[in-house]
């Protein structure tokens, strides 16, 4: 297992040279974005067990702000990234304070409701382009507009962000904060009896998660140069984060990565086979995965591997 981390890092670093061409690079970028978003979600949804199904609210804020900065003031989109993070932070506090009084499914439903309200509201708000959405600079004015013709620069920018998110998660896992998150997930009442400040800890997790999710949204809109209510605040954005994390293994460091590794190619394949475009297909795919996970392996592929790996090892030793 000692070589697995360097191997993974090398694989991600050299992937664009192993599988070359825009098609594979596009999948690579989509994979990284899914991994970043799901890792961000994982902090509050996985470790703390507060299953938000409304994380698109942070993704959308992060996606809109850069293009809004360009649209309103002609600033380079990147300039809007910190503002998006700040708004997401404020939103996290505003959402977390009342909803963390709710338990389990009620919290999930509350987050869906808030995200949907924001989506509907943004769709009617002229300042942010209403239903049409916003566009970034069609042609880059300089390098700082980050409009590259090739996917390659985006791949490495996204990879750097993923590294930051994973490293932060790694540090969280080892810290008091991380232990408290897992204790809260396992039992709030018992956690409280041991002096864990439950609501403050949950709120901190949501804030951290929101900031990273916001950055994911910013990366998305800067790269595509376009955002509308559905691709920013749509329910599929939230559901994808939940599914990617759950598929790979929520509350584990590399679970979201594994989930993205499985889901993104699958999604690309189904889209090319069945002509793509139809988001109805995405719903069916997601629904199918949820049913399979709930039925066979609620712990995701990470848990499944933990069962399977020792058996494989034994067999290979015996042979």
């Amino acid at each position: 297992m000692k070589w697995s981390l360097p191997a993974l890092a090398a694989l991600l670093l050299f992937y664009p040279f192993i599988l070359t061409g825009p098609f594979y690079w596009d999948i690579g970028v989509a994979f990284l974005l899914a991994a970043i978003s799901a890792s961000a979600w994982n902090i509050v949804g996985g470790y703390a067990g507060q299953v938000s199904v409304g994380h698109s609210m942070f993704f959308g804020v992060g996606a809109y702000t850069p293009l809004l900065f360009y649209h309103l003031w002609g600033l380079p989109p990147v300039a809007g990234v910190p503002a998006g993070m700040l708004v997401s932070l404020a939103l996290a506090v505003a959402i977390g304070m009342p909803t963390f009084r709710l338990q389990g499914h009620y919290f999930s439903m509350a987050t869906i409701a808030v995200a949907e309200l924001i989506r509907i509201f943004v769709g009617t708000w002229d300042l942010v382009g209403a239903a049409i959405g916003l566009q970034g600079p069609a042609v880059g004015r300089a390098w700082w507009d980050l409009t590259f013709r090739s996917e390659l620069p985006y791949y490495y920018i996204f990879l750097a962000v993923l590294a930051v998110v994973l490293y932060t998660t790694f540090e969280v896992e080892r810290s008091r904060f991380g232990y408290y998150l897992r204790a809260i997930k396992a039992g709030e009442r018992a956690a409280r009896s041991l002096g864990v400040p439950v609501r403050a800890t949950k709120l901190k997790a949501l804030m951290l998660s929101a900031v990273f999710t916001s950055v994911a949204g910013s990366l998305y809109s800067i790269k595509t140069g376009f955002i509308d209510p559905e691709s920013g605040f749509g329910i599929l954005v939230s559901v994808q984060m939940v599914i990617v994390a759950a598929l790979g293994g929520a509350a584990t460091l590399f679970g979201p990565l594994i989930g993205a590794l499985l889901l993104v190619p699958l999604q690309t394949a189904t889209n090319t086979w069945f002509g793509g475009g139809g988001s109805g297909l995405t719903y069916i795919l997601y629904g199918g995965i949820i049913v399979l996970l709930a039925r066979f392996e609620p712990g995701g592929m990470h848990e499944w591997w933990q069962h399977v790996a020792p058996r494989l090892m034994r067999r290979s030793h015996a042979a």
Partner: peptide
């Protein structure tokens, strides 16, 4: 400090 009559240990930890 208190313990619970029905143990409330953190099962996955």
């Amino acid at each position: 400090g208190r313990t619970f009559q029905v143990p409330a240990t953190f099962e996955d930890m």
